[in-house]
Design a protein around this nucleic acid. Structure first.
Lengths: 219, 219
DNA sequence: TGGAAAACGGGTGTTTTGCCCGATTTTGTA
DNA sequence: TACAAAATCGGGCAAAACACCCGTTTTCCA
C-alpha cells in the first residue's frame, strides 16, 4: 500500500460523533474525510460514488444494518478496507463483523490515538483489533458459553438480530431484500441451531449473549 | 440567569465523542469546557472541584451510574444544571433521569444545533427535551404499556409471567390446571391488551415493565 | 477452477393464532 | 341478599405461521 493521502468515508449515525472524527482526523496530515454517511444505505451509495481508501463505520445504524452493510460493500468491492469503530464490546459482534469482511474492530472506549493507529494499520493491510476486543475474544473462545451462536452464519446472525428486536418476517424481508419465506426458513434454522423451541427463549438467549441489550427495542 | 460565559463539564466515556463536543462547543463564543470526565465517579469529583454552570452527560458510563451520578451531584448541589445527552431513546430512562434531577434530555440522534439550543435553554432554567423524547414520553404515558399492563386481570398477569419465561402452553396448562386452549386464548388476550403483535415484543415489554427482570433470564 | 458452504426460496402437512362465541364462576356493591 | 358486572374457562374455525423437507443458485476459498 502507498503512503499517500488516505481518503476516508465516515459512517456513524450520530452527528456529534462525526464532529469528533473530523476534529481528530483532520489533524492528521495525510487523512482526508471525503464523505459522511448516517445510515447503511447511504454508506453503500457513497462508497460507490467516492471509492474511498478506507471506511470507518459504527455498527449501530438507524437501519440496523451495520454488518449487513459491510457484506454489501465487500460484495461490491472485495478490496474495500473497512474499520469498525463502535461501542459494542461484544466479541460475537466483533467476530461477525470480521467474518463479514471488516479489517479492523476498535471500540469507542479506546483513546483517539488507538483509532489513528488502527487506520494506518488497516490502510497497510494489517488487521487491527483493540486490546479490549482481543481480550474479549480470547476469553470467549476459552470458556465461552456462546458456542452455538458462533455456528451461525453471518446472514443468520443478521437475521437473528432483526428477529429479536421484534421485527416481522415481512419487515425483515423488506430490509434485506429477500423473500419472507427465506426469512422464515432462516428463523427456523437459527432456532434449531441454538436449540431453543420458541421465540421467547430465543429473545432471552439473545439478551444473555448480548446480541441485543435489553431495552434496545424500546422506542 | 446571567448571559456570561457558560462553564461546562463534559461527561462521556468515549473520547471521540468528547472531541466532537469540543469541536462543536468551542465554536460558540460563550461556551467554555472547563473539564472532562469519563466516568460517574470522576464526574462527581470534578463537579465539586470546578463548580461548572452546566454539566453535559451521557448516561452509559463505565461504572453504569449515569442516573446515580445525577442524583449524587444534585444532592451535593441542588442547583446544578444537568443536561443529559445520550443515545437512549427510552422514555423510562428519560423520566428517571429527570426524576433524578436532570434539567434536559437530548438524544444523540439530534443535530448538533439541537444540543446547542438545549444548552442555552438549560442554562436559562428552561427544561430541554428533544422532540423524539417528547414524543416517546407522550406515547408512553398516554397509550403506553405501563397503563395497559395494569388493565390485565390477575389471571392474565399470572399467565403473562409464565409465558415470558418461555413456558409452553401445555406446561402452563399443567401448572394452572386449566385447558391449554384457555392458556392460548388468554395469551392472545394479553397480547391484544398490551398492543403487541408477537411474543418477542411481549418479552421485551415484560422486561421493560419488570414483570420479569433481565437477570431472571441471564443464565 | 472445482468443490464445499452459504444463501435463497418453493412445497406441504401440522400447529398455532386471532377472533368469535356462550357457559360458569367470582366479585363488588346497593 | 340480590344481581349486574367482571373474570374465568374453553369450544370452534378459518387464516396464518411453523417445522421440515427439498433443489437451485451464489459465494467463497484452497
Amino acid at each position: 500500500m502507498n503512503n499517500r493521502q488516505i481518503n476516508i468515508l465516515l459512517v456513524d449515525d450520530h452527528a456529534i460523533v462525526r464532529e469528533g472524527y473530523r476534529a481528530l482526523l483532520e489533524k492528521q496530515p495525510n487523512m482526508n474525510i471525503v464523505a459522511e454517511a448516517s445510515s447503511g444505505e447511504e454508506a453503500y451509495f457513497l462508497f460507490k460514488q467516492y471509492r474511498p481508501n478506507l471506511l470507518i463505520m459504527d455498527l449501530s445504524l438507524p437501519d440496523q444494518s451495520g454488518i449487513e452493510t459491510i457484506s454489501r460493500i465487500k460484495k461490491y468491492e472485495p478490496a474495500a478496507n473497512i474499520l469498525v469503530f463502535t461501542m459494542h464490546q461484544n466479541p460475537l459482534i466483533a467476530s461477525k463483523a470480521i467474518q463479514a469482511g471488516a479489517r479492523g474492530y476498535i471500540t469507542k472506549n479506546n483513546l483517539p490515538a488507538v483509532l489513528i493507529q488502527a487506520i494506518y494499520d488497516v490502510h497497510c493491510g494489517v488487521m487491527a483489533l483493540s486490546q479490549d476486543i482481543e481480550k474479549a475474544i480470547a476469553l470467549d473462545s476459552v470458556a465461552g458459553p456462546a458456542v452455538a451462536i458462533k455456528e451461525l452464519t453471518v446472514r443468520e446472525f443478521e437475521i437473528l438480530r432483526l428477529v429479536v428486536t421484534a421485527k416481522s418476517a415481512a419487515e425483515i424481508a423488506e430490509i434485506l431484500n429477500i423473500s419472507p419465506k427465506t426469512v422464515a426458513n432462516c428463523h427456523y434454522l437459527i432456532k434449531r441451531k441454538l436449540g431453543v423451541s420458541n421465540d421467547i427463549e430465543l429473545t432471552h438467549l439473545a439478551i444473555k449473549m448480548q446480541v441485543i441489550d435489553p431495552g434496545e427495542c424500546l422506542q
